[in-house]
Simulated scan of single mutants.
Amino acid sequence: MTEQFIAVVPAAGVGARMGANIPKQYLPLHNKTVIEHTLVALLSHPRISKVVVALGSEDGWFTDLDIANDPAIIRVDGGKERADSVLAGLQACHSYQWVLVHDAARPCLTHVDIDNLIIAALDSEHGAILGSQVRDTMKRTDAQGHIIATVERELLWHALTPQMFPVKLLTDALTTGLAGNADITDEASAIELLGLTPKMVVGRADNIKITRPEDMPLAQLFLQQLTQKNNHECNGEDK
């Protein structure tokens, strides 16, 4: 039998940079909310059998969504920081060996990217993450905003999600990092703090994270394109 996996979606944040009166994951986008697109992308993948959603203690929106009643959804209380929410979600993953962690505000995820991530992660004992290579010239500035160096971009990547790791390894890494007050910006950074080297997997650049208001129309465009492509494939138009 093909191994099944579980995903954790930390969704306890409020997304202050969006300037909206509700958390960004509940903003309307292409006939659904942002988080609904995210969860559908995960749950519709044949190798993901459960999704754990870590919600804020005062979340009053998730229960109103139709997808909240999906039996494959597990809800847990999130924490103050992303790492706290992911760690809380991992407590519901004890019967799985591997976990995928994905941002609630990345609704443009494709099954092809999930497939490629799974293949790479299973071939690496330290896990793997999706990423996109840096294309622009990179500059480093001082605290006053003056350019002090041009950074070589050849081996630089934008870290994306999902990120996939063994459940026990990620649990240990996050627990250790939080105990040491480490700066854990994503799951891979916690693994790196243990001296380990997750693998980078080339992902689609349109797997954007909605952070600012200008990201919404871009995500709308990408979702429309993905929907059209899927419809063409289902109708046998792409041979």
Rank of each mutant, 00 (worst) to 15 (best):
Ile73Thr: 08
Arg47Met: 09
Ile129Gly: 13
Arg153Glu: 14
His232Leu: 15
Asp142Val: 10
Leu39Glu: 01
Val76Lys: 02
Arg47Pro: 05
Ala92Val: 03
Asn231His: 07
Ile148Pro: 15
Leu27Val: 06
Thr141Cys: 13
Val52Thr: 10
Ile48Ala: 05
Tyr26Gly: 10
Ile208Arg: 06
Thr197His: 12
Glu233Thr: 07
Thr137Leu: 11
Val14Met: 06
Ile208His: 06
Val14Asn: 08
Phe222Cys: 03
Gly19Met: 05
Ala179His: 04
Val14Phe: 11
Thr175Leu: 04
Ala120Val: 12
Glu125Pro: 15
Asp172Cys: 03
Gly177Ser: 12
Gln91Glu: 09
Phe165Glu: 00
Arg212Val: 12
Asn69Ile: 01
Trp61Lys: 08
Pro217Ile: 01
Leu87Gly: 02
Ala20His: 11
Gln91Leu: 03
Gly127Arg: 00
Val52Asp: 12
Gly56Lys: 02
Met164Tyr: 01
Arg17Asp: 09
Leu193Ala: 05
Trp98Pro: 03
Asn69Ala: 07
Ala179Thr: 03
Asp84Gly: 02
Glu214Arg: 11
Val51Pro: 05
Leu130Phe: 08
Gln91Trp: 03
Thr171Leu: 01
Leu130Val: 07
Gly203Cys: 09
Asn207Arg: 03
Leu43Asp: 15
Val134Glu: 15
Asp123Met: 01
Ser189Lys: 04
Tyr96Cys: 12
His232Pro: 02
Leu196Tyr: 04
Leu156Phe: 08
Ile73His: 05
Ala20Ser: 13
Gln91Met: 04
Asp64Ala: 07
Ala128Phe: 15
Ala88Leu: 02
Leu170Lys: 00
Val9His: 07
Ala54Thr: 02
Ala173Gln: 11
Val151Met: 09
Gln220Gly: 03
Ala190Arg: 02
Leu221Ser: 04
Leu27Ser: 03
Lys139Ala: 03
Pro23His: 14
Leu194Arg: 10
